[in-house]
């Protein structure tokens, strides 16, 4: 129940987010699906006890793969779907808590969260890279 609620919220959040970037109307539902799948993968990985960093990596790899598939199916640039996919993985909360603890003067906590932001952002980038490489393998 809780997971279903999170996934539905994620669908709404990602599809409205890509519409802010003027995503084409016929792509919006697929963008929402990409985001939901990525977040679902992220949640599942964390459910198996993996760290948020590894979970974000798996989520963004999934994003890359799904986006390349959708790009070919819908004849649209993959970035439309990728942008949607990585949004729920972006460490917005960690970035906030880093600033929160900085403002408290609790630098140890702040650094902890700030490094989490860096790790997760790097994991997302690495996942996208893997996704793109896979696609090139398939095409060649």
């Amino acid at each position: 129940m809780n997971t279903a609620y999170l996934l539905i919220t994620c669908f709404v959040a990602t599809s409205s987010f890509v519409m802010l970037f003027d995503a084409p109307r016929r792509a919006v539902v697929y963008c929402g699906i990409t985001g939901t799948l990525a977040y679902g993968g992220y949640l599942a990985a964390q459910g198996y006890g993996l760290s948020p960093v590894v979970a974000a990596f798996l989520g963004s790899t999934l994003t890359g793969a799904v986006s390349e598939y959708l790009a070919r199916r819908q004849r649209m640039p993959a970035i439309v779907f990728i942008t949607a996919g990585i949004i729920p993985l972006v460490p917005g909360a960690s970035a906030y808590y880093a600033m929160y603890y900085f403002s408290l003067g609790a630098y140890q906590q702040a650094i902890l969260y700030a490094s989490m932001v860096l790790y997760i952002a790097s994991a997302i980038s690495a996942g996208l890279a893997v996704g793109a490489v896979l696609r090139r393998r398939v095409r060649a």
């Binding site: 959040a13 942008t83 949004i87 972006v90 906030y96 952002a121 996208l128 890279a129 793109a132 490489v133």
Partner: peptide, 25 residues
Amino acid sequence: DLAIIGAIMTLVPGLLLTNAIRDAL
């Protein structure tokens, strides 16, 4: 905290990061 996080998520440079990685690759 949750309200602030929700609001700043709409500013996140997601497309910029995506493009950066794809360009470099």
